[in-house]
Simulated scan of single mutants.
Amino acid sequence: MPLTPEQEALRTQFTDTGSTWTPAWERVLQIDPSYFAAYLKLHHAAFNKRLLPPKLQHLLILSADASCCTEYGPGIRANMAAALAAGATQAEVLETLELTSVLGVHSVSCGVPLLHEVLAEEGKPAIFLGESQIWDKRQSDLRDRFTATRGYWDRHWNEVLCLDPDFLEGYLAFSGEPFDERKSIFDRKTKELVYIAIDSATTHMFLPGLKLHIRNAVKFGATPYEIMEVFELVNLMGIHTMLEGVTALKEISN
Rank of each mutant, 00 (worst) to 15 (best):
K189S: 05
A148D: 05
L52N: 07
R188A: 10
K189C: 00
M1V: 00
L233V: 08
F186V: 02
A86D: 13
A217L: 08
H204T: 04
E8W: 00
V105A: 06
F14H: 02
A148E: 09
F206Y: 11
A217G: 11
L207P: 07
P113R: 05
L29Q: 02
T247I: 10
N254K: 10
I196A: 13
E192L: 09
R138P: 08
S19I: 03
K41I: 00
A82Q: 07
N79L: 11
A24K: 03
L62W: 13
E181V: 14
H156P: 14
R182D: 15
Q133G: 10
P5V: 00
P74R: 04
L163K: 07
S184N: 03
I227Y: 14
Y195A: 07
F179A: 11
N48F: 06
K55R: 12
E122H: 02
K211A: 14
S34A: 07
F186T: 07
G221I: 02
R150Q: 10
M228N: 12
T223C: 02
T147E: 12
A201M: 03
V102F: 09
A83N: 09
A148T: 13
Q30D: 01
K41P: 00
G75N: 12
S19N: 09
A120Y: 14
L52F: 04
E71D: 09
W21C: 09
I61L: 01
A120N: 12
R145Q: 15
V194A: 14
S101H: 15
A82C: 06
R138L: 08
Y152G: 12
G151V: 11
S67Q: 07
P23N: 05
I227P: 10
I61F: 06
Y39K: 05
A37D: 09
V234Q: 01
A86C: 15
S109V: 05
I134G: 07
I61H: 06
R188N: 11
A120P: 01
A66F: 03
I61C: 11
G104H: 10
G87A: 09
R27Q: 08
L161A: 15
E117P: 05
E226G: 01
L94H: 09
T4L: 01
A81H: 01
T89D: 15
E181H: 06
R188H: 03
E226R: 03
I239P: 05
S175Y: 07
A64Q: 06
R188P: 08
T202D: 05
A148L: 14
N254M: 13
E192F: 03
I31L: 10
A66G: 05
H58Q: 05
